[in-house]
Design a protein around this nucleic acid. Structure first.
Length: 578
RNA sequence: CGGGGUGUAGCGCAGCCUGGUAGCGCAUCUGCUUUGGGAGCAGAGGGUCGUAGGUUCAAAUCCUAUCACCCCGACCA
């Protein structure tokens, strides 16, 4: 492609409404333009990268036995009513009417459509297993779209749905296969990522993983072991911490102390001059049935609500309102404690590391000191309820330490079991002619977000540094002076030769000044740059430079094609995962 | 939806308080000179000042409403 003919409207200045690097750089590199909040046009350069990701996704999914189809973006309300989600989904579902007043929505996801299709077309266990996927635009009317392609309302997603006759199959030939395919996909994209254990909600089990591209600007926090494969979203992560540091209960007397208006851990810690690790904090929670609990943690620990929810085996947990706390504990917020607590007390393991602790007295403006477990209170359960932290022990292996990373979620795999199939009539006849609900899995990849996260992970202050497999072009030829006949002709000749070999090459044939060309080249981030200048050309050489490196090599014109081919092969091999 | 902020040329902004010819830089077009890291000179084009009402002899400027966009919270690929 000739630069002079391609729509690449680069910007020298940073657009005022962009905050994150991927957004800024995609705007500046002329890759995207906004039409409305969270809705973008992908310009030619961006589309080339998107297509590359899509191709990798297709190749790996096809290889894993999945089949591509394409479902409608506009979906009738009926199927959403039958799944119960027409009312449930909320304002994120963009609803529209046709000319006859019929109700439709723009598809935010396709469980309804795929299940509708399945129940009509798949009747027998002999047709299973089957895995169907598509790559298309989704529309989710997000409350707050932001960060360019990172969180758009319209975005490109690959969604896959698998159907199996039994759980063993679903996990082995379904979930595991997709997990491996995802690992290959992101490896082939040239991204540094981790597959982390994620919340499975009410389904339970370790059968959901988030694929997180590591980037300091990521919104998700993950903890990963430095010795084994364990890594998990901090929302779910466990650690070996609770097994260490346990102390015997102390022998101090329980003393009621006056602590006027001292509510928070910091306030009490300062007021009584004891460290927060000597405090036991008590939080009041209730589940979706309105049942209340008192949750105790060491003062310097944070409650992981997800762990609490899973421990209780309920659909949701909520922090109690101020009025409820007064009603349930007899004291205002800040003075709850396990001693004499009427509500069931559940303690995090961290409480075992506190002896002669400080707790609320369930009485306004009073706390207890010298509180010890066993003697002064007894929880109904001990559990891991705290947020795991950087530097703590790995729960899966010996000696491994967890480290914290920031990540961008680009994919998630779910084993769903029969949760949806039983509700949505996805049934087949088994060998006995009996109807059974099928085992389902669903698997998503944010394609446009993957491209954005690649930039988030690979850039410097001058611009993008594309991983070769998803770069819009592999090579950029930069003739410094197009008006110099020798330089121009050498550029054109090399351009022709590389094209002939099927190499994707961008020829900057603009008659711009060198500074503009160099800066644009850095901004666009094409992995291989070949600069053709008057002086080196006189000796029969061109300059060869990788975007990610500072080194410039002088290569004889006669060798440059081979050099490019070898370099492409080497860069691709880095991402092959072999 | 709650809180904060911004709408003036393709991009970045000034002008508004104190009403009176709509400006600057970059970009664009023409010509000449320049050409290894965002050139110089000369000239040109481009704006219903987000929109709708109101006040006024007169509104980008004051008032009212409204819309859009951005940032902080709950959601998610």
């Amino acid at each position: 492609m000739r630069y002079s003919r391609m729509l690449i409207p680069t910007l020298k200045e940073v657009p005022a409404d962009a905050q994150v690097q991927s957004h800024i750089l995609m705007l500046r590199a002329g890759m995207i333009r906004k039409l409305a909040a969270g809705i973008y046009t992908y310009l030619p350069l961006a589309l080339r990268s998107i297509r590359k990701v899509e191709t990798i996704v297709r190749e790996e999914l096809n290889r894993s036995g999945a089949q591509e189809l394409l479902m409608p973006m506009v979906q009738p309300s009926e199927i959403w009513e039958s799944s119960g989600r027409w009312n449930q989904y909320g304002p994120e579902l963009l609803r529209i009417k046709d000319r006859k007043g019929g109700e439709f929505c723009l598809g935010p996801t396709h469980e309804e459509v795929i299940t509708h299709l399945f129940s009509n077309e798949i009747k027998s266990y002999r047709q299973l297993p089957i895995n169907l996927y598509q790559i298309m635009d989704k529309f989710r009317d997000e409350i707050r779209p932001r960060f360019g392609l990172m969180r758009g309302r319209e975005f490109i997603m690959k969604d896959a749905y698998s159907f199996h006759i039994n759980k063993e199959d679903a996990l082995e030939s379904g979930y595991k296969v997709m997990y491996d395919a995802y690992t290959r996909i992101f490896t082939r994209c040239g991204l540094k990522f981790r597959a982390v254990e994620a919340d499975t909600g009410a389904i339970g089990g370790n059968y959901s993983h988030e694929f997180q591209v590591l980037a300091s600007s990521g919104e998700d926090t993950i903890l990963a072991c430095d010795a084994c494969e364990y890594s998990a979203n901090v929302e779910k992560a466990e650690s070996k911490y609770e097994m260490t540091g346990e102390v015997e209960p102390g022998s101090a007397e329980v003393v009621e102390v006056h602590t006027p208006n001292q509510r928070t851990i910091d306030e009490i810690s300062a007021f009584l001059k004891v460290g927060p690790e000597k405090l036991i904090k008590t939080l009041i929670y209730h589940d979706d049935d309105g049942k209340f609990y008192a949750i105790c943690l060491r003062g310097d620990e944070e409650l992981n609500e997800l762990k609490l929810k899973n421990h209780l085996g309920v659909n949701a947990v909520y922090a109690a309102e101020e009025a409820d706390i007064l009603k349930q504990t007899g004291a205002p917020v800040g003075f709850a404690g396990p001693v004499g607590m009427k509500l069931p007390v559940i303690c995090d393991f961290s409480v075992k590391t506190v002896a002669d602790g400080v707790t609320g007295a369930n009485k306004k403006d009073y706390h207890f000191t010298g509180v010890n477990r066993g003697r002064d209170f007894e929880p109904i359960a001990w559990a891991d309820l705290r947020c795991a932290k950087d530097g703590e022990g790995c729960p899966r292996c010996d000696g491994g330490i967890l480290h914290e990373y920031k990540g961008i979620e680009v994919g998630q795999t779910f084993y769903l079991g029969k949760k949806y199939s039983s509700k949505m009539k996805a049934v087949v006849q088994d060998e006995n002619g009996k109807d059974v609900a099928v085992e389902m899995g669903c698997y998503g990849i944010g394609v446009s977000r993957t491209v954005a996260s690649a930039i988030e992970q690979n850039h410097d202050d001058k611009g993008i540094i594309w991983p070769l497999p998803i770069a819009p072009f592999a090579v950029e030829i930069l003739p410094v002076m197009m008006k110099d006949d020798a330089v121009r002709e050498a550029g054109e000749k090399l351009y022709g030769e590389l094209l002939e070999l099927g190499i994707e090459v961008l020829l900057d044939d603009r008659t711009e000044r060198p500074g503009i060309k160099f800066n644009d080249a850095d901004l666009l981030g094409i992995p291989i740059r070949i600069t053709i200048g008057k002086k080196s050309l006189k000796d029969g050489n061109v300059e060869f430079k990788l975007r990610r490196s500072q080194d410039v090599e002088l290569i004889p014109l006669t060798d440059i094609v081979t050099k490019v081919q070898d370099t492409i092969a080497a860069l691709m091999a880095e991402c092959s995962g072999e």
